[in-house]
Nucleic acid binder design. Structure first.
Lengths: 107, 107
DNA sequence: TGGTCACTTGGCTAAACTACCAAGTGATGG
DNA sequence: CCATCACTTGGTAGTTTAGCCAAGTGACCA
């Protein structure tokens, strides 16, 4: 794999890695349904420390998946690229396919 | 986040995590173009130790993204769910969007 | 049956990731 | 102003991951 190809796939991996955590997927899912949410709202939904949520959001932001906007003392986050929802559809179809495979062994 | 939701997003994250590495994204890309490849072929393309490639393939297999078939002394891998290619399209559009954003700062 | 190829697995170390607490910054309300 | 809320950042300990080498298995060939 030459350096250029390497760089290309590292760039792609950065985006995918930013989604590779249950909490961050949950955040994306929430933002997909609700347009925007502030850190406190997300923190309440998730149930972990606000500092943890803030760092997850920073990860998503640095990958370009979400964008933030400060309004008053709150910071609102929203999805920057709607197609990330396709991720979910595909992930779900992998999961379904896995279940079907397992049922073949059972049946 | 209740236990059920937690479990759902952990299952999804497992799939996404399996793709969250440049080498594994490269493998998926290769398998998308070529139907199937054996471990040796992939190892030559990637250029790292075969044991490393084998472990990456095991990660993808355990997530249900690829399937393997042993023929003779070789093991051939192929994509199990074609939609993973949508991942790339979306990832690319995030990257494009990031570039556009950066050009706003420059321009 | 001995040697080689194709592959997987175990072991190990270095690096990356995660989550919490604690501390610091800004905006808001009394 | 002072307290509080909303948020980010630094520090740190525990866990996970990645890569290589070495060793083991199975297929194939001479």
């Amino acid at each position: 794999m030459d350096a250029k190809t390497q760089a290309l796939f590292e760039a792609r991996a950065k985006i995918v890695k930013a989604m590779a955590h249950p909490t961050r997927l949950f955040i994306v899912d929430q933002l997909a349904g609700e347009q925007e949410k502030c850190v406190r709202e997300l923190t309440e939904l998730i149930g972990s420390d606000m500092s943890t949520v803030s760092k997850h959001l920073a990860t998503l932001r640095s990958a370009g998946i979400v964008q933030d906007e400060k309004r008053g003392s709150q910071v609102y986050y929203r999805l920057r690229v709607p197609c990330v929802l396709n991720f979910f559809q595909c992930v779900e179809s992998v999961i379904r396919s896995n279940i079907e495979l397992q049922q073949q062994f059972v049946g």
